[in-house]
């Protein structure tokens, strides 16, 4: 049961991340690597106890047809200064209309959370050693932003 921040609250998640590529016969409540899931898509399609995760170079286009069957999608940040998954989040939410939990995994640290949130990531599985309460408070370090984003589709200039 990993501890995550979900929609601003610290909570235990039913879903854990599986980093290895093997598919266990009794797998349940796990996020599988996208590649593993795609290889077994016929078997796994429609199972809402199985989620997936994309690495930073994972292309969301590959799961375009299945996106809304997942309860949880993970996005892996290999380092906190790699921003590729921020674009993946935008595509999943804005282009494909994904409504479920979108979780940052990997090197997830408090100073990046606010940006992730604005890109549509609503859950955070923090890196080792990160303080969950302090991280939660950093989600709101800015109260206003200029851009049209996933969390605020109207840019500031249409609201000011």
């Amino acid at each position: 049961m990993p501890k995550i921040i979900l929609d601003g609250n610290v909570t235990d998640s039913d879903f854990d991340v599986q980093y290895g590529s093997d598919l266990e016969a009794d797998a349940t409540n796990v996020l599988l690597p996208m590649k593993t899931w795609l290889e077994q898509a016929d078997k796994l399609k429609g199972r809402n106890d199985i989620g997936i995760w994309l690495d930073a170079d994972g292309e969301p286009e590959e799961i375009a047809d299945h996106v809304n069957s997942f309860a949880v999608i993970g996005l892996n940040f290999p380092t906190f200064f790699d921003g590729r998954c921020l674009s993946t989040a935008n595509i999943l939410r804005r282009k494909y209309g994904y409504k479920g939990e979108l979780r940052a995994i990997g090197d997830v640290r408090r100073d990046q959370l606010e940006q992730m949130r604005r890109c549509g990531i609503n859950a955070f599985q923090l890196a080792e050693g990160q303080d969950a309460d302090a991280a939660t408070s950093s989600l709101t370090s800015f109260t206003v932003g200029y851009q049209a984003t996933v969390d605020q589709p109207e840019p500031l200039f249409r609201r000011r």
Partner: peptide
């Protein structure tokens, strides 16, 4: 300025 997607 603070474009959340393009800071990294």
């Amino acid at each position: 300025t603070f474009h959340p997607e393009f800071n990294w």
